[in-house]
Structure formats: structure tokens, C-alpha cells
Write a protein that binds this DNA or RNA. Structure first.
Lengths: 343, 343
DNA sequence: CTGAAAGCGCTAACAG
DNA sequence: CTGTTAGCGCTTTCAG
């Protein structure tokens, strides 16, 4: 099938080592020799077999990024950033999705592609701490996202509680009093609560505003449809919110769709704030105010962590939890507060 | 570092062949033997080295999908469909992006990852026929998308001209007379025109409506911002359109944003039709009427083609051009025509 | 049904 | 500066 080093060596009348030297751009090859070998390479159309090289070197130069789903533009945008960051270290990224299933998260975290990938960046949804503690010899791992783990792995995430508080604080400053939270997870979760929900609660309590369950809507997933249903449920429940803080932008967008259908105006009747700052958020008929995590920083920190582990050949002595930046992108769905309030 | 087959064999007191048989679930292994080997595997935490297996078998079970960018949800959604289709054939997908650069498209098409991937599904933007004719021994390739090539490769694409005609025909049936096209490419293109632009022109001419350049806006890219700028340019130009057919949904969404800012109503003043049916199109304040390509079919046909080539060990004798289905998803931005017209 | 040994294509000692 | 050779870990004839 393929043309091998040996074929080239034979053709050029040299040893495989010399060809290897040329292919890898090593020093100490006379120009004449190099030219002769290069010619043989061109004539035969030789292409190095990376698989063999990988086997020999014990590494592949490929890292994997596993996200819940591409359907959420946040992860699509993040994937782009990770690919760029990895390219700067000469790594290729294999992008994978777990469909948000714990089973798949477990599989991928335990080295499903052992020896094909050098390391893994995983954004889990359902994975638990105990799923991670049993992990052995499956290569370097970096975690992403809102979940917290008591496991010895680097974890990259913005300060979700603080970001949520800023978002809710912004709504409070607008004079809103009944601020709902859309997108809590269903009860099976062992986690006490989402960090974003916690931030919502803290900020409301600090402001002396109601933060009870009647203002929280649980959703099945994290998509637009979930947001639309959640908003409908909130209204049907008679909660009469004057603002909504959504777990993410997709839920916020779904909620705005329902508000429009019910004849409620944004931000007039209900102000809306999302989370993620996906590009879509800027282009709705009413642009979305949202928490904007620094995706480039997240990607860079994740890749840097992985690359460092790969170089050291060992996990970090102490797990690191860097905090990439974020800011509130203020747009039309919850505009800047004017002196004297918004209404 | 790792535990190898040999280590397991030693531990279990058998030969490597036997361990290999167990690992690969071969027949003809006595249950007792199998149990003993399995125990050794578990004790040592053995995980097969896929790289070595790949080298030996000459294939990796990985296929690559290269799309212009993840930022466009169409490709993100398509990627998900390809991953699912590939999984049904026990293939893993390495998702890559070309950033829409011809240089990258060329690189990837010529076997950048030779021997790491078994085959490639490529969605090109800038690649030319001559870039493909020089391609040798870089593994099976399947092309996706609107561009047409005179090269011996399978190409999967819906009937873009017919789909565009349906979209424009729908606008005509609504009684619209000045129907613009947003998203033509800049002049460098050697292609005479986009298929979608051609469909727009054909349908308008058939209806006896104007189809001149004053109704066509060229864009730099295919994003929301490009659509917003294009719409602004069209209006500033004094074209006074009563409908817009956009190259894709992102451009349509950007255009609707501009229309809203200018105080024009959709579909009252201007009806809008997009192309791709990304989920986002269903959730705007005004949902988008759009051409909906059957993404599952596209993905399935592409993967099937690749898998067939992989099995035969040869490219198809004659290149195939299957036509996955499509339909017009009629929503609020260009609703169904009512008897007697829409206005 | 199981064992021994060859070799996939490449790189890295080690010689020359 | 270049050639020889031994594996990386696995699968696979070919014997037993």
C-alpha cells in the first residue's frame, strides 16, 4: 500500500536513518545528501506514517476535548478556542461529545481512547467526584465547567457564584423585585445546588428580596426549548416575575420567545439576563444581556495545563483552580440602570 | 510505563496470543482460560495500546470531518449528525476546522493526518477542482456542500438550485415583487455563481420579476454581522425590497436585526427566508422561514460513502452525487400564503 | 485450542 | 556525517 522509509532509502541508495534525518529536519545532513533524499521522497510520494511514529515515541500529539453537545453554541465557540490554543503548542484536537450522558463522560474520562490521545479536556455535567477518584493511568486530565470536584485534577472555571451575583445585582439595580431563576437541575443531583443558583440566592438575600422556590424553575436540559417551557411554567404558576436570570443563553433565548408569544415586552415587563455570551445573544430582535466568560482564557488555561502535565510526565503536585475572567455584557434585554431606576 | 500484552501473559502464565484472543473476544478460548486471563488483565489494569493495533492493522477507525467553522451552528449540528452516523459503523470522528481558508482546506485534503485517519469528509469553501485533481494516496475523501467539482470524489449535497427556487417561489406566492439576495461571494471566485444565487435568479425570471444586481448584496463572510451589514447596505442603496432571501440562516438573522433597528417589520414590510434550518432559526422573536436540508441524510450518506470506500479499499468507480432531501420550513418571517395574497 | 515468532513503519542508541 | 540494529505493542500466520 503505502511507501515506507525503507522504500525511499532504497531508491536514494542511503540508509533509513538518513531518510529519517531528512524527514525530521535533523542537523548534520550534507545538502547534497538532503537533496538526493528529498528527490526520492518526491518521486515516490512518500508520506510518513504517523501511527508508527506515535507508537515509537509513545505520544501522538493529539489531545481530546469532550463537551456535552455541539448543539449549544457555547461549546462550539469554546471548541474553536481550544483548537487555536492547542495549535500554538503543535497539538491537534480531537473533538468529542458526550451527549451529556454520565455513561459517556465516565467512558471518556477513563481513557476510552488511551494511547490515541495524549490528554483530555473534559466538560462534565453528570460526572461525580467518585467517578474520578478511581481513575488510573488514563493520561492527563483537565476539567472544565461549573461542577465542583474533590479530585486531584486541574479545573478551569470562572467564578460562577460571583458572576451570577453580578448578573442578579444588575437586575436589582434596575429596580426589579421579583427575579426568577430558570434552569435549575432536577432532583437526582447530589450537588447541593448549582453555583449559579447559589449566586442568585445570595444576591437576592443580600438585597432583601424574595428568593424562594416559587421563583425557581427546574428544567430537563439546557436548550432553547427548555427555556421556553420553563418560562411558560413560571408564568402559568402566577409567579409574576419582573426579571429572569437564566442558567445559560439558550434558556434565556427560549424564555424570551415565550415572553413574546405571551405579549410581554423585554425588558419593559420582564428583564432577562443569560450566561455564556454566545454570538447569537447579540443578534436577537432584543439583544441579550449576559455573563460573558473569557472563552479564550479558559481554552488557553486548559491547554496550558495539559501541555505542562504532558511535559512533566506527571499530574500537577497540587491541583490548580485558576479563575479565568468574566464580565457582564449589558445589552437591550436588561439595559444599564439610569439614575433613578429603569421604570 | 504502560502495561503490555506481554505483562498480562506473564502474569496469567499464558502466551500473548491467548491474551490477545481474550481481549478481542475471539472464539475458541476455553472459559477457564478466559477467566484466568481476564483476572490478570483486571489486576494489572491493562488497557490495549490502540496505536500499536492501528499500526499493525493499517487502519485506525478514525475518520475526520473538516468544516469551515464551528461558529456556524449548521456545521455544529452537522458534526453531531456525522458523529452519530459514524458511531453506527464503529468509527470515531475527529472534528477539524479549516477556518474557511483555502490553505487549510488544501492541507487537510492532501492528507495532513495521513495514517492517523482512515478517511475524510470535507466541506470546502475555497477549494478548486484543480486542488483536488493532484491529490494522490491520501485516503478516501467525500465532499460536502454547495461547491461543484469536476473531480472523482463522491459529493453529497442537496439540490441547492431547486431549494433556492422553492424559497423564492414561496416569497413570490406571498405577493412579494422586489426580492433581494443577501450573501453572494466576492469577485475572486472563479465559480460563475452560487447555486443558490442561480436558483434565485431563475425563479425570479420565471415569475417575470426583477433579478438585477441592485438586489444582490455581496458579503465578506457568512455570519450574522455580515447579514446585518448587507441588509443595511441594501436599504441605504434605496433598493426598497419587500422580501429577502439569504444565503444562510445567520445572514438572515443578521438582516432581521438590522430591519428591527430600522423600524421595519418582518414579515409586514419585509419577508425573510434563510437557508440551513439551524435551531436558532426557530427561536427568534420572529421565527425564520428557511430551507431545511436533511442533515441526518447528509451525514449518513457521507459516512456510508466513506465506509464503503474503506471496505472496498478503493474509491468508487464512478463518483456519486446523491441528493439528500430538503423542504421549506415555513414560519413567521415568511408565513404561508393565504388565498388572495398576504398583504 | 494455544504457543512461538515475524513484522507493521518508525526512531534512537550505538557503531563506524 | 551515515549505517546497523533493536524494539515500541500488537496481530497474525503457522505450527503444535
Amino acid at each position: 500500500m503505502g511507501v515506507s522509509l525503507k522504500d525511499v532509502a532504497q531508491r536514494a541508495g542511503v540508509s533509513v536513518k538518513t531518510v529519517s534525518n531528512v524527514v525530521n529536519n535533523y542537523q548534520h545532513v550534507t545538502p547534497g545528501m538532503r537533496a538526493r533524499v528529498q528527490q526520492a521522497i518526491d518521486e515516490l510520494g512518500y508520506r510518513p506514517n504517523l501511527t508508527a511514529r506515535h507508537l515509537r515515541k509513545g505520544r501522538t500529539g493529539i489531545i481530546a476535548l469532550a463537551v456535552p453537545e455541539f448543539g449549544n453554541p457555547y461549546f462550539a465557540e469554546l471548541a474553536g478556542a481550544v483548537i487555536d490554543a492547542a495549535a500554538r503548542h503543535d497539538y491537534t484536537v480531537l473533538v468529542d461529545h458526550t451527549a451529556g450522558l454520565r455513561e459517556n463522560e465516565l467512558l471518556v474520562s477513563q481513557g476510552f481512547r488511551a494511547h490515541v490521545i495524549d490528554g483530555l479536556i473534559l466538560s462534565p455535567i453528570h460526572l461525580e467526584t467518585e467517578d474520578l477518584t478511581g481513575r488510573t493511568g488514563a493520561g492527563p486530565l483537565v476539567l472544565l465547567g461549573e461542577r465542583e470536584y474533590e479530585a486531584p485534577y486541574d479545573h478551569i472555571a470562572i467564578d460562577n457564584v460571583a458572576a451570577a451575583r453580578e448578573a442578579v445585582g444588575h437586575l436589582v439595580a434596575l429596580g426589579r423585585r421579583r427575579i426568577a431563576f430558570l434552569g435549575s437541575r432536577t432532583g437526582r443531583e447530589r450537588q447541593p445546588a448549582h453555583l449559579r443558583l447559589r449566586g442568585w440566592r445570595q444576591e437576592l438575600e443580600a438585597a432583601g428580596l424574595p428568593a424562594d422556590d416559587s421563583l425557581v424553575v427546574v428544567t430537563d436540559g439546557y436548550g432553547r426549548a427548555d427555556g421556553a417551557h420553563a418560562m411558560a411554567e413560571l408564568l402559568d404558576r402566577g409567579a409574576a416575575p419582573d426579571a429572569v436570570f437564566a442558567y445559560n443563553d439558550l434558556i434565556a433565548i427560549g424564555a424570551m420567545r415565550t415572553l413574546a408569544e405571551r405579549g410581554l415586552s423585554v425588558p419593559g415587563d420582564v428583564a432577562v439576563v443569560g450566561f455564556d455570551d454566545i454570538e447569537e445573544a447579540r443578534y436577537g430582535t432584543v439583544s441579550l444581556t449576559t455573563v460573558s466568560p473569557d472563552k479564550e482564557a479558559i481554552a488557553r488555561l486548559a491547554v496550558d495545563s495539559l501541555v505542562a502535565q504532558l511535559k512533566d510526565g506527571a499530574p500537577p503536585s497540587a491541583p490548580r483552580r485558576p479563575r479565568p475572567g468574566h464580565h457582564l455584557a449589558v445589552r437591550e434585554s436588561a439595559p444599564a440602570a439610569r439614575p433613578g431606576g429603569d421604570r
